[in-house]
């Protein structure tokens, strides 16, 4: 494992911790899209099916369990927790799941490495992860005044994706035949979705001000 991959995983972990911190200690999920969180839960559930069949490393297994556990508990908190759920911006978070899930599934049926249940679900999880942030970005755009933790959360998620791209570039040059178009293109699309957010995030840092997206 190279430094970019490790840094990417740790950034991903940090994003989840920031979100749990917000939900668990402040008891608020204001500005957080339940739709995005549910899509991530589906992403991890379909991608980590190999937990039961392939052992890669203790690190890999532990991280998978953490991402699975945290994504489902975040969904539980927003839906079921008696205090947290009151802060959920239900009326603003209107993105429809099937607009995202259905095209990803169809695409996975067409483009995959092998036509087996696991491979199709694996491709599906990559396509879905690429666009799962969309409901969250739409919600940010609508709320406009974004609190610090929500801003950090989205920034860390974007940074995790950018580091994964560096990881693939590194692997491409150090491992023979490391060419994986499905992973690369969906990963690139996913990272590009953050470009706009990054722009305003760095602007707000430069001006030492609050993160605010234009209407």
């Amino acid at each position: 494992m190279n430094i970019f991959r490790l840094a990417g995983d740790l950034t991903h972990l940090a994003s989840v911790l920031v979100l749990l911190l917000k939900i668990h200690t402040i008891k608020s999920c204001a500005g957080i899209s339940l739709k995005t969180q549910e899509l991530y839960a589906i992403v991890f559930a379909t991608r980590y099916l190999d937990l039961f069949t392939t052992y890669i490393s203790l690190y890999n297994t532990l991280m998978k369990l953490i991402f699975l556990g945290s994504s489902f508990s975040i969904v539980w908190y927003i839906r079921k927790h008696k205090i947290v759920r009151r802060s959920y911006d239900k009326d603003q978070d209107t993105f429809r799941h099937y607009f995202i899930v259905l095209p990803c599934f169809v695409l996975a049926l067409i483009i995959h490495e092998k036509f087996t249940v696991r491979e199709v679900l694996w491709a599906f999880s990559l396509y879905l992860e690429a666009v799962a942030i969309l409901p969250q970005l739409v919600l940010l755009q609508r709320t406009r005044n974004i609190d610090n933790l929500t801003g950090q959360y989205v920034f860390l998620l974007g940074a995790y994706r950018a580091l994964y791209i560096l990881n693939w570039i590194y692997r491409y040059f150090t491992e023979p035949h490391f060419v994986h178009w499905i992973t690369w293109i969906s990963g690139l699309v996913q990272t590009l979705l953050y470009a706009d957010f990054f722009y305003y995030y760095f602007q707000s840092m430069k001006n030492n001000g609050k993160l605010q997206l234009p209407a």
Binding site: R5, D9, H12, D50, T54, I56, S57, N60, M63, K64, F67, W122, Y164, N167, W168, R171, T174, E175, P176, H177, F178, H180, T183
Partner: peptide
């Protein structure tokens, strides 16, 4: 080094 699949990633 041998070629691996990105399935060892998360």
């Amino acid at each position: 080094k041998t070629s691996k699949s990105p399935k060892d990633e998360l």
